[in-house]
Write a protein that binds this DNA or RNA. Structure first.
Length: 587
RNA sequence: GGUCCUGUAGCUCAGCUGGAUAGAGCAGCUCACUUCUAAUGAGCAGGCCCCAGGUUCGAAUCCUGGCGGGAUCACCA
């Protein structure tokens, strides 16, 4: 039984013995004692005043005394107002360190036999990735890591939006103005190359439209008509068009792969919309048969969700073609056929909240096996200090540029400090990469996903304060001490060690880690892990500042502090790994 | 207009399943490197937790109603 559960059952026994009260564990608010009071865990006794018919202070004292004499864990207690502060026998914490410091799977929850699929990134293939995708990718990746560590089997996937009018626009522009150029011939990364033609298309269309307006003509620009014709040919499987489409998409995928590599992310399975966009139709037929859907006079198919507080929603056009919802129904079902997952998480921006609310309701009515496990990890838009990112105004922050910038910043910062002279170039650039990306990833993931966030490029590469590098630095400090310690090995046991306040605090924090992982997995929220890592690093920095490790005389103290440090390093690395952040050994 | 999200220090954010005197970082001002790395630590200053009611022994946290910001209410994806 865990410590908390043991305390709770002790308190239950106390309440039963003292007041014949039958309290459920959930009624027992047992929280870590606030720093300004002494004790380890605090029980709030106000809820029992009515049933026990006593003053809060008396109840707290009664329970405290009962626990002290019946629970060996509880060494002492104090009462302030209605708060019972319990002090755990310090040997418990020392024993905890002894046990868990060698546990290579500390913070890994037991396998629960469930499968979860996480969809994230899901780009269009007509332009490069930008800052918004980065938030999406980091959230999805981190979420997948957290779920994996919380005991799930995780399948990472994305749906690639590789068809539609926007792709055809890039194609038209390239066919008209590209003159056979390629990413190689132009020295551009594939996705940027194709993106260039998407921009070119928009410029062309606007120019044509302006000319038409000036001439008093109405209607669509000729180039738009060409793009539409291309889409029609694509849908009719025209081999020539398909070949160009495949070639251009191939360039884009090459480019994306480089960005994914740079970010250190990967996927287990890719779904392409060109394969899936027709999948939903058979479910429309099923829905019609079962009466879930209904047909309007024009032949379009709808579902009525008004009894669930939503509107009517179209699921098939009158001409029999799919809409977004049709595709998502089909894709979800086909994923289930592929993987039989228990849960399905979509990492998609919050502008699609309503879409997913409707989709999940439909899947529930379809009685899909995984419908209780559907979750939309919705995140807010990323703003710049100057306002919204707008592609028309050229204020979009490109993903590749951003990655380069943060690494460059980490590099120049480190060179200024000049502490890495002994490392060779390859080592150095790897360290700078870890620091730069650590800064970027932490900066984005520390914010609660639901919140719209402001991204200040200057602040994102800041290496002081509540940042990724600050946490990495705590790890590096430990590693440096451990390296030095390894030079003169010694044996000692710290069984009877008497801890300093900061040491106890660090241990209690380490103790929390599995709970943090569990909570983050339940809430699909990496920011709680980020904040935990920060608090742990902060306490370690303070400990490191106040207490020597290698310079203390007593072998017992030295051993304890080394072991404690080692475990802090392990948990920091493990926690940051959940955010997709790699730790440098030196910095 | 309906629905959903959001509002905490000058700025960026924690805390929100109700608990003790609301916390960090940045920016500003002090101080501490002959040290296991100062990418650090200690301190000062900075708050009608958007407003008004309600529930409660207790509200930043829950409820109601406002106000500000955002999204959405497409046969685009």
């Amino acid at each position: 039984m865990g410590l908390i559960a043991q305390l709770q059952s002790g308190i239950q026994n106390a309440l039963e013995a003292l007041y014949q009260l039958d309290a459920s564990a959930s009624q027992l608010v047992l929280s870590p004692t606030r720093k300004e009071f002494s004790g380890d865990f605090t029980l709030v006794v106000f809820p029992f005043t009515k049933a026990a018919k006593k003053k809060p202070e008396d109840i707290a004292n009664d329970i405290g005394n009962h626990l002290k004499s019946n629970e060996s864990l509880v060494k002492d207690f104090n009462v302030i107002k209605g708060f019972l502060n319990l002090e755990i026998d310090p040997s418990y914490w020392v024993e905890f360190l002894k046990q868990e410091s060698t546990n290579k799977s500390f913070g890994h929850l037991e396998k629960n036999g469930q499968k979860v699929m996480v969809e994230f990134c899901s780009p269009n293939t007509n332009k490069p990735l930008h800052l918004g995708h980065i938030r999406n990718i980091l959230l999805g990746w981190s979420c997948a890591k957290i779920l994996d560590q919380a005991g799930y089997e995780v399948i990472k996937t994305q749906i690639i939006n590789d068809r539609g009018i926007h792709i055809c626009k890039s194609m038209v522009a390239w066919m008209e103005t590209g003159e056979g150029s390629t990413p190689e011939s132009s020295g551009l990364k594939g996705d940027h190359f194709v993106g260039k033609y998407y921009v070119a298309y928009n410029t062309l269309e606007r120019a044509e439209k302006d000319k038409m307006t000036a001439a008093g003509e109405e209607g669509d620009a000729p180039i738009l008509k060409k793009a539409r014709a291309l889409l029609k040919k694509w849908e009719d499987q025209d081999p020539e068009v398909r070949a160009i489409w495949e070639k251009m998409n191939g360039w884009v995928y090459d480019g994306f792969d480089q960005t994914f590599d740079a970010l250190g992310v990967s996927f287990d399975k890719l779904y392409y919309e060109s394969d899936t966009y027709l999948l939903g139709k058979k479910y429309v037929d099923q829905g019609l048969e079962s009466g879930l859907f209904f047909k309007k006079e024009d032949g379009s198919v709808w579902i009525d969700l008004e009894d669930a507080g939503m509107d009517q929603k179209i699921v098939l056009r009158a001409d029999g073609t799919s809409v977004y919802m049709t595709q998502d129904i089909g894709t979800a079902q086909s994923r289930y056929e592929d993987y039989k997952m228990d849960k399905l998480v979509y990492v998609v921006g919050d502008e699609q909240n309503y879409h997913f609310k409707v989709l999940f309701e439909i899947m529930k009515r379809f009685k899909a096996n995984y419908s209780d496990g559907l979750f939309h990890l919705s995140y807010g838009m990323v703003d710049l200090p100057t306002g919204k990112m707008k592609s028309r105004e050229g204020t979009v922050v490109d993903a590749d540029d951003l990655i380069k910038d943060v690494i460059r910043e980490a590099t120049s910062n480190a060179n200024e400090r000049g502490t890495l002279v002994e490392a060779n170039d390859a080592e150095q650039s790897d360290i700078f990469r870890r620091i730069g990306l650590g800064a970027l990833k932490y900066f984005i993931l520390k914010v609660n996903p639901k919140k719209r966030m402001t991204f200040d490029p200057k602040e994102s590469v800041d290496l002081h304060g509540n940042t990724g590098p600050y946490i990495q630095n705590a790890y590096v400090r430990i590693k440096s001490v451990l390296r030095k310690a390894a030079e003169s090995p010694f044996e000692a046991s710290f069984d009877n060690y008497k801890m300093e306040a900061l040491e106890l605090e660090l241990l209690k924090q380490l103790f929390q880690f599995p709970e943090v992982v569990k909570g983050a997995a339940e809430a699909y929220d990496p920011s709680s892990v980020a904040n935990y890592c920060y608090e742990l690093a902060k306490n370690y920095h303070r400990f490191y500042h106040d207490h020597s490790i290698l310079k203390v005389e007593e072998a017992v103290t030295k051993k304890f502090r080394l072991t404690l440090s080692e475990m802090v390093a392990y948990v920091l690395a493990s926690g940051m790994n959940l955010l997709g952040v790699e730790m440098p050994e030196k910095m």
